[in-house]
């Protein structure tokens, strides 16, 4: 941004701003070009530690454990860590459970969240403000704060240790409603008037007119929800107990516990890579989309 600013300003300056200003801008232009390179260098310097950490863990995953414990990374290559990791935890089942939970929940959320956001922005009725605040307050009362009473509720409903029970506390999603609300608010009210004049019902208006226009917001919410629940740990640890219902992060934690006692760092590194890989790969491929989605998740109205 600084670079382009510098360039355009000096171009404008040569195009005919009064002399002294032009000179000043020319000087500033070169200065800001240099400081732009310095800023680039500082940015790289800042991210270097995290980059090194990332490389070290991937290398450790492919290094024999004996070499790691002698402190010799980059000395030998092996796939043994992955072989043992895949054998000692049922990664296939962990992936499948996590996939079912995250995508199943998302499918339900997309419906509930879209309807609620539409009703909050495009319909008029008494008590709308109250409902707005009721949903807004939930942003401050995340389900993890309620693990204790929610666990007993699940037991009462006979849904403890099921993936359905795991998903229930997240079906009402204030984050999603506020994200979609941004989308609905950006559509001019004239669209609604025109649709109603043509005899459309509110649901038809939502389906045929609004939905195509809020697709970017739906996509952004999908990414945020998928990442959050794919990585989630505390609630799944409590809500599910049998090995057949276990999700990835819980599997990794129990796996890490047993490998840590034996200082099997190669194994821990391989497990970490296996758990992080799906999202990491998607992130590398769709980097811009991820970044845009997450920056939209901050409340903007």
């Amino acid at each position: 941004m600084e670079t382009s600013l510098g360039k355009t300003s000096s171009k404008q300056a040569t195009a005919g701003t009064p002399g002294f200003l032009a000179q000043k801008q020319q000087k500033k232009g070169i200065q800001s070009l240099i400081s732009s390179y310095i800023q680039d260098a500082l940015a790289i310097l800042l991210c270097l530690p995290l980059l090194v950490v990332m490389v070290l863990i991937v290398v450790a995953a492919f290094t024999p454990n004996t070499a790691i414990n002698r402190g010799q990374l980059f000395s030998a290559f092996t796939l043994e860590n992955f072989r043992i990791a895949l054998k000692s935890a049922n990664f296939g089942l962990l992936y499948w459970n996590t996939f079912l939970y995250t995508f199943g929940l998302l499918a339900v959320q997309l419906v509930t969240v879209t309807l609620a956001a539409f009703a909050l922005t495009r319909l008029r009725y008494r008590g709308r403000e109250t409902i707005f605040y009721l949903i807004f307050l939930q942003l401050f009362l995340p389900p993890v704060a309620l693990i204790l009473p929610n666990f007993f509720l699940l037991k009462r409903l006979q849904l403890a240790d099921t993936l359905v029970g795991l998903a229930l506390p997240y079906i009402a999603s204030a984050t999603g409603i506020f994200l979609l609300r941004q989308g609905f608010k950006s559509i001019p009210p004239e669209f609604d008037d025109a649709a109603y004049v043509d005899g459309a019902t509110p649901l038809q208006l939502l389906w045929y007119v609004h939905l195509p226009m809020i697709k970017p917001h739906l996509a952004a919410f999908s990414v945020v929800s998928l990442v959050y629940h794919w990585n989630e740990f505390l609630w799944p640890l409590i809500a599910t107990s049998s090995a057949s219902k276990r999700v990835l992060s819980v599997g990794l934690a129990s796996f890490t516990r047993s490998a840590e006692s034996g200082a099997e760092w190669g194994l821990i590194a391989a497990g970490t890579v296996l758990v992080a890989a799906p999202l990491a790969v998607l992130f590398i491929v769709f980097q811009d989309f991820f970044v845009r989605s997450f920056s939209q998740s901050g409340i903007k109205g």
Binding site: I44, V275, F283, V291
Partner: peptide, 24 residues
Amino acid sequence: LARAVLFHPVILPTVAFAAVWLYL
């Protein structure tokens, strides 16, 4: 590039990120 590297821990499971530091 720096932005992606600084952001990437957000999309990793916290338990995986913590396991990395357990080793480090």
